[in-house]
Design a protein around this nucleic acid. Structure first.
Length: 219
DNA sequence: ACCCAGGGTCATA
DNA sequence: TATGACCATGGG
């Protein structure tokens, strides 16, 4: 089995996912913070609240009292933490001159810039880099670790960057074009998440295919 | 009633 | 470097 053959199997089974759910670049970035260790259905409620309050914009979130922001995003959980994180991120983005400026940066500068924000870790940054800015980085999340550890392609306890490079180099042998990489990484991560949810709901704690925390041999 | 989710930070050793 | 505590809502 290879990284590419597994992708093909997932794609054949589930079909294209067209991620990320979100209408604008900014909405995708907000969603990336809100979905930290949280079910997407809860994030949707929070985003709906922001839209209804006409608060889903860089300037609004940056200027809003943090308490008010926390109230709006409450359904997403960890609302006090995430309100601070969202504002940290928006303040940073404003200081850089906004999306249009940051969009012109090269991949590495963009990634490191995002990572410099308190509350934006590797996965959140890469969600933004891949899905909002359409740059070729492979997103590593808990499901990805568990699934590929199960399949025996990785150990599972590697660091984030190590894993990311394993995936990227494993796929770059056949997919070399930058835009093709973006599409592939985009679909691949989406398929992994869909697959994990699918398998887990069907067979909780089966001890074999299930990717929940307690099922997985790793962790 | 329990398990967990598309993580990240901070304090401690 | 590596653990552990902490954050919190809502669905299965």
């Amino acid at each position: 089995m290879t990284f590419l053959s597994i992708y093909r199997s997932l794609h054949r089974h589930y079909g294209p996912q067209h991620w990320w759910p979100g209408e604008t670049l900014f909405e995708i970035m907000v969603g990336a913070v809100l979905t930290q260790n949280t079910a997407w259905s809860n994030v949707e409620k929070a985003i709906t609240n922001l839209k209804r309050a006409r608060a889903l914009s860089l300037s609004k979130i940056a200027a809003m009292p943090v308490q008010e922001l926390a109230r709006l995003i409450k359904p997403a959980g960890y609302f006090n933490v995430k309100a601070r994180r969202l504002q940290n991120f928006c303040h940073w983005l404003q200081q850089q001159g906004g999306e249009k400026i940051v969009q012109q940066w090269d991949d590495n500068r963009l990634r490191h810039g995002l990572l410099s924000v308190n509350g934006v870790g590797p996965e959140t940054a890469d969600d933004m880099v891949l899905y909002a800015f359409e740059r070729p980085v492979f997103v590593i999340d808990a499901y990805t670790r568990r699934l590929f550890a199960r399949l025996g392609l990785v150990g599972g306890d590697e660091g984030y960057e190590t894993l990311r490079h394993l995936f990227e180099s494993g796929l770059s042998k056949t997919v070399k074009q930058r835009e093709e990489q973006v599409k592939l990484y985009n679909e691949y991560h989406a398929l992994i998440v869909i697959h994990a949810k699918d398998v887990c709901r069907k067979r909780p704690r089966c001890g074999e295919c299930c990717l929940r925390r307690q099922c997985a041999a790793v962790e």
